[in-house]
Design a protein around this nucleic acid. Structure first.
Length: 581
RNA sequence: GGCCCCGUAGCUCAGCUGGAUAGAGCAACUGACUUCUAAUCAGUAGGUCGUACGUUCGAAUCGUACCGGGGUCACCA
């Protein structure tokens, strides 16, 4: 029995009934009505703002409505007591015998506990990582990658159908730099290079590609015409870089469903096709744009360019599609790519981008609006910068400077599980310090450690219980037949566990996977607190010799906690530890 | 200058999308291991939620203006 959900439904029913009676004209926003744990213990087990939300909509006194709702709820067996407090909160005290049912609910649902379903099979396109195939991933990419991956898992968990997509920027000018640099490395390996080209990627990571080229082609490439040579190096290098990136993603336990190639789209005239659609809507024209106000340009040139009329869709200026030399701007293929997403019929499109792309958001929104016949939900999640810190010093990561820390090297020091958890230990739009020393510490400073430790403690207790033939439970009869009441600090943990479905719901609805990580910390804290507690100098034990009833009750609680931790970590793509290292 | 994000305890951050007396962790101080793992726990202390108006029964949360920090702004992708 999911107590919170039952309360929600009952309250919703009453609200609908009242709305019916009062003939409410405005649409009812039921999502504003929440059932939550109050901050203070004396305010009951759960509280709801239903009377206040409804009062506002019906222009009625919340207290009168509260009384009405209270009368309707009072007779429920689930509810022990209900009171109307403050500005109109209904504070609900749960009949203590139902806590056993909650524990039963968690144990019988196991992996599915918390599976709230509201996605209704809607199709979601979730684009993330999308790093250029000109170098390995850096920590910023990893943050976006983990964010996207966990959001995918979350959305799937609540019933959406998710396509995880990586946009491969294999068509633009930066690929030219890649090819040039690889060719330089190739010559260098043959002992013929002079100096690094002016525009290049100086990092060592391109050397293996050159070695492979030599292994495959020997010295032959030198003698080929430039066009032909570049073509070979190009596909060779992109292929190799994507393999490196895919390997990094695999090590981080991230699996994409689709790699969308920019180059392939360009070759199949994807850009022209999209532009024709826009032309048909009168959204393409030749014109000039003004320089940004307040910024001084010494070399501003007025240019006539092909422009997309994104100002029709709330963008600040119209955006150029072609450069003056007739080639595409960066935006052109991206426009076509997003048009393609719409064409594929997704109900929801989500982009996860680095915060340095914030200026890009409004034109992408414009593209989506221009192409979608019916409204498509579109959201861009910007992920802020990650600072890598070691020995209290910030390590710079730059493709240009070449001082690059490879994810594979980082993984030798810190496990993927730790990286994943830490990447979600902040809201996505606040910068993150990734402190390696902290990640290695075996203490509360290290957030995953704390959660894992709680899990390991539970596993250890259950193992001991098994040795004593106290576990598993089903050999010992049904829990609900045992009537021993829970202690106050046990109840604190149980109520925390009861929040789980709600945490999932909120995290999925608002696309905020970090909430899972924060919640798991709270569960771990509540568990450690119970584990360490004592009454009258007698330490708390899950296994109490001589009282099977106590054992059953407490072991069931421990096991329920394990289920919630396991489910939470699994959404984060992390495998819980059974014992500490 | 325009746009986006941030500003909450000494530090790092939550704050369930408008609710009750604003919460954690770290650092500081006090205390708890003969244990199913003390890598943990309990307690004390710490606040003009950047500032000022406004919206209403009610604002850290919404609006406007300002202050401070970061990002970004036409042939770079």
């Amino acid at each position: 029995m999911d107590i919170v959900n039952i309360l929600r439904e009952k309250i919703h029913d009453i609200v609908y009934e009242l709305v019916e009676k009062k003939k409410l004209i405005q649409p009812l926003n039921i999502n504003n009505i929440v059932v939550e744990r109050p901050k203070k213990l004396h305010q009951g087990d759960y509280s709801t703002n239903a009377a206040m939300v409804l009062g506002k909509m019906l222009s009625l006194n919340p207290k009168d409505l509260g009384d009405l709702i209270k009368l309707k709820l009072r007779d429920e067996e689930l509810i022990d007591d209900i009171s109307l407090d403050g500005p109109g909160f209904l504070n609900i005290k749960i009949n203590p015998k139902f806590w056993h049912s909650l524990i039963e609910e968690i144990m019988s649902n196991d992996n599915c506990y918390g599976e709230v379903s509201f996605g209704n099979g809607k199709k979601v396109n979730l684009e993330f990582v999308s790093a250029n195939p000109t170098g390995p991933l850096h920590l910023g990419h990893v943050r976006g990658a983990v964010f996207g991956d966990v959001l995918s898992r979350l959305l799937e968990f609540v019933g959406f159908e998710v396509t995880r997509e990586y946009y491969v920027n294999d068509g633009g000018a930066q690929i030219g730099i890649l090819v040039r640099t690889v060719y330089y490395r190739y010559l260098e390996k043959l002992g013929e290079a002079t100096e690094l080209p002016e525009e290049s990627y100086p990092g060592d990571y391109l050397i293996p590609i050159a070695e492979k080229l030599i292994a495959n082609y020997g010295k032959k490439l030198k003698n080929l015409a430039e066009v032909e040579r570049d073509k070979i190096i190009r596909s060779f290098s992109i292929g190799h870089m994507m393999e490196v990136i895919k390997a990094d993603l695999r090590s981080l336990n991230i699996q994409m469903d689709n790699f969308f190639s920019e180059q392939a789209m360009i070759e199949s005239n994807g850009i022209e096709i999209s532009l024709n659609t826009l032309k048909g809507k009168g959204l393409i024209y030749k014109g000039t744009i003004d320089p940004p106000k307040g910024k001084t340009y010494t070399d501003w040139k007025v240019r006539e360019q092909l422009l997309f009329k994104s100002t029709n869709f709330d963008d600040d200026i119209d955006r150029p599609i072609k450069k003056s030399d007739g080639s595409w701007t960066y935006f052109a293929p991206d426009l076509a790519y997003h048009a393609d997403k719409i064409k594929r019929g997704f109900d929801m499109v989500i982009d996860i981008l680095g915060a340095d792309h914030s200026g890009y958001v409004s034109r992408l929104k414009a593209v989506i609006k221009a192409f979608s016949e019916k409204p498509v939900e579109f959201e861009v999640k910007l992920v802020q910068l990650v600072k890598l810190i070691k020995n209290k010093k910030v390590l710079k990561m730059s493709k240009r400077a070449g001082d690059y820390i490879l994810i594979q090297d980082l993984l030798k020091e810190v496990s993927s599980d730790v990286i994943r958890f830490v990447m979600l230990s902040r809201n996505n739009d606040v910068p993150l310090d990734f402190d390696i020393d902290l990640m290695l510490s075996k203490s509360k400073d290290n957030p995953v450690f704390y959660v894992n430790y709680a899990h390991a403690r539970i596993v250890s207790v259950l193992k001991r219980a098994k040795e004593l033939k106290l576990w598993p439970l089903d050999e010992l009869g049904d829990l609900h037949k045992k009537t021993l009441p829970f202690l106050e600090n046990e109840l604190a943990l149980i109520k925390k566990l009861s929040e789980w479905p709600n945490v999932v719901r909120q995290a999925a609805r608002y696309h905020e996977p970090h909430r899972i990580a924060f919640y798991l910390n709270e569960v771990a804290s509540s568990f450690h607190s119970l584990y360490q507690s004592s009454s009258e100098s007698i330490p708390y034990r899950f296994i109490v010799e001589g009282s099977q009833e106590l054992c059953i009750k407490r072991l069931a609680l421990a096991y329920s906690t394990q289920i919630v931790i396991k489910n939470g970590l699994s959404l984060l793509g992390i495998v819980p530890l059974d014992e500490m290292y």
